[in-house]
Design a protein around this nucleic acid. Structure first.
Lengths: 277, 277
DNA sequence: TACTGTGAAATCGTTCACAGCA
DNA sequence: TGCTGTGAACGATTTCACAGTA
């Protein structure tokens, strides 16, 4: 999960738990799809399935917003779409700036979902003078020199950082000084910001590493006490069957095993060969 | 946080809590930076600061891996880098494929951090015949028809989906059928996958919506009980003090503007005007 | 009857605070 | 003396299970 410091910790603002807030956009998306198909009502069961959560959780989440359902019937789709939108602050328009128009920044600028609901790209900013004026996603890139002016004139409170890691902290400081209070950070660095500023991060390599952890575990489980040397060329044994799809499939909730293999770190082991930079 | 269904829920494999796993990459990054500066040891306090967490949490996290520190001294940087890398499965090479070479897919392909540590882009795949053969990030794009063959020949177990939402579910099914057991999904859809397959998602608009929620809240707080009529142009009366972070400074954390306007959800309100699609 | 709303229990995650060791 | 490792307290989140109601 890409998450950063989240507002004032401990003081859960008006009551809606953070975990619930993080799921509201998911519900909203599912509801919007239903709305487009003109479905008038949904049960917690159906909506939960569409959003990929379980129904008890969904009902509990909604209970924090109020009692918007009808027992025996379900939820009114349009009404819920509105209530959730309002709760998320999407009934108003949020101008955002994207700083760092490289491959990623440009991709973000072109991403439709951006402007889709409640957000509007107010400006694209880059430090490279050569980029200035160039159109990206139908909008001229502006130079970092004008960052403060842009933020202020457009009343921007949300900034997206897509610069190289080295520039991110400084960019965040300028954004914040100019009035931004929420940052979405795509640069692989930890930003340190003052209280009251929210940062969320999206980090490709962290996500991959988490997946790798689970992959390794799966492989270990399958091979049970099998192969002990991961050394060589990647190679994924574990072809077909794997733990994959298969319903019943033997080796079900093992877990235990996994341990064994990778585990046993007991012996201090030998000092490493250091990772490649 | 971008998070998806995570392996077999409830059966926390061998003991390392999911929340800890999600932080290991963060520690690893901080440690790598120290390693590059030839720093031999760090205390939990220092490392925690670099990773943006608090030291108690860091020590607890490390305690799940074993006792790798030295009381009174700290942790040996190189040694920890190795242990964490091993735990995350980064001592081996993971070939990955990226499916959907649009703006985002191309950006991902070009992203350095990808190949950097433990991962290798084995292939770029796109459904557009016109893309086939075109080089992106120094690698020819291949057509979706060959997806299964590519997965199998390269022993790929991790797939990245950067297609439009509409294609994502089907792509995931083909990837899984071909042997992939971990997916990083950038498409704004909920993927439904069989047990044993891990999915993590990265979703720009969800992150923005979460930020918007907090922005709205901040703005509302500033206006305190003040304005009963949200109408007018923002402006944060009740300056200073607010709950905000900030040093005194006059109208500091502005944000106000947007704010107030939408607030005031108290009364069940009237039925909505329906959101724009 | 079918489904929501919600206390209460179970689980998971964080923080505290201090014993123990180099 | 300084810092790790960890039991225990605490807090947040999820799940259960069922009472309540349209």
């Amino acid at each position: 999960m890409a998450t950063g410091r989240t507002h004032r910790p401990a003081t859960r603002s008006r009551g809606i738990p953070e975990a619930t807030v993080a799921r509201l956009p998911l519900y909203l998306r599912a509801l919007t799809a239903l709305s487009e198909r003109s479905v008038p009502t949904v049960s917690s069961e159906e909506l939960a399935a569409a959003a990929g959560v379980n129904s008890a959780k969904l009902r509990k989440d909604f209970s924090y917003l109020g009692s918007y359902g009808t027992r025996g019937v379900g939820y009114d789709v349009e009404y819920l779409v509105y209530q959730i939108s309002r709760e998320l602050g999407l009934t108003q328009d949020w101008p955002v700036v994207i700083v760092g128009i490289g491959n990623l920044g440009a991709a973000l600028a072109n991403y439709g979902g951006f402007s889709a609901r409640g957000f509007r790209v107010a400006a694209l900013i880059d430090a490279d003078p050569a980029m200035a004026g160039k159109p990206v996603a139908g909008m001229p890139v502006q130079h970092t020199d004008d960052l403060e002016k842009i933020i202020e004139e457009n009343g921007v409170s949300i900034g997206v950082i897509a610069t190289p890691a080295g520039a991110a902290q400084q960019v965040s400081e300028r954004l914040i000084a100019a009035g931004v209070t929420s940052i979405l950070n795509f640069a692989p660095t930890v930003l340190s910001v003052p209280d009251g500023v929210d940062v969320r991060k999206v980090d490709l390599s962290i996500e991959l590493q988490i997946l790798a952890f689970h992959e390794q575990r799966k492989a270990g489980e399958e091979a049970a006490a099998g192969a002990s040397v991961p050394g060589g060329e990647g190679v994924a044994e574990v072809p077909g069957a794997g733990s994959g799809a298969a319903p019943a499939a033997a080796v079900e909730p093992p877990a235990g095993r996994a341990a064994a293999v990778a585990r046993k770190n007991g012996p201090e082991g030998d000092v490493p060969a250091v990772m490649p930079a």
